[in-house]
Design a protein around this nucleic acid. Structure first.
Lengths: 145, 145
DNA sequence: CCAAACTGGTTGCATTCGTAACTATCTATT
DNA sequence: AATAGATAGTTACGAATGCAACCAGTTTGG
């Protein structure tokens, strides 16, 4: 077969996707097994924990989620009483979302686990590998994001 | 709120996933719009184009796909007459898959598009950024894959 | 040999997710 | 004001995916 070949293993989009899938699958056990959260729910929790109060659209922008996913994740976390909604006074389309005590508590428990996961991940790399990785990702983000 | 904060934007699993999602979504237009393929179908095409003849399990391993996805993608490509199955003589559970003329033709058309995409992606980065990126990804792959 | 365990591949079912259409509200133009 | 166009968020539906159960064929150990 005298045709030009594409080597899948070294093809950048494939490598990225595959790695992200592996890591994400691994990480998801943290919030799935320990807290029974889906990925969108975890992201909403993370967003509100980090920023205090946000609207659904702001959440969507910050964590790169489609508004339908935000909507469903918020509904579920509200059902659990992990967050509360408050209507905006001047614009009644807007809802300000905040973690409840229980939600903040869950966030507080989650953060060290997440950081430990990341550390364990980076810990497997040498310092120069870590630098290369973050520099490379940052470069891609600058051009893509 | 005096709690430890996790910064989502710089959290490695999130960054990886988000970038991969952006790139993959962008790249998928190539095989979706031009050839009407799904991602699993594209990967099967790529695997067979690269390796000539493979079994379904080999495809699954090479391209990190669940065997159900391989099975469905193979069925669809067979329906299109882009690949053909041949039973193994000594082990009748095995099927050897090969691209047909039409499948090879599609592959031949696809490869330059994929390479151009990758080049365009890398082209936005400086040489040292490219080196950093591939080194960083390779390091992660060594420890994770 | 023959039952038990294993492997390649398919199918049914439940979950996840994205697109598009919808409701309600707000803004801008006239 | 009144209407047209935008925006926040929800919902309904379809497509993609994963898990588990399954079938057919093969290997292994008594």
């Amino acid at each position: 077969m005298a045709m030009e070949i594409l080597d899948l293993e070294t093809f950048l989009p494939y490598r990225l996707y595959h790695l992200a899938d592996l890591v994400s699958r691994d990480f998801s056990r943290l919030y799935k097994d320990h807290f029974g959260l889906t990925r969108p729910e975890w992201r909403v929790l993370a967003g509100l924990g980090q920023h205090g109060t946000m609207t659904a659209s702001a959440l969507g922008e910050q964590s790169a989620m489609h508004k339908t996913m935000v909507s469903r994740a918020v509904a579920e976390l509200e059902r659990r009483r992990w967050l509360a909604r408050r209507q905006d006074d001047s614009d009644r389309r807007l809802e300000h979302l905040t973690l409840t005590k229980a939600g903040a508590e869950a966030y507080r428990n989650m953060v060290p686990l997440a950081k430990a996961f990341e550390q364990q991940m980076l810990g497997r790399l040498t310092t120069s590998e870590q630098t290369a990785l973050t520099a490379g990702l940052a470069a891609l983000e600058r051009k893509f994001g």
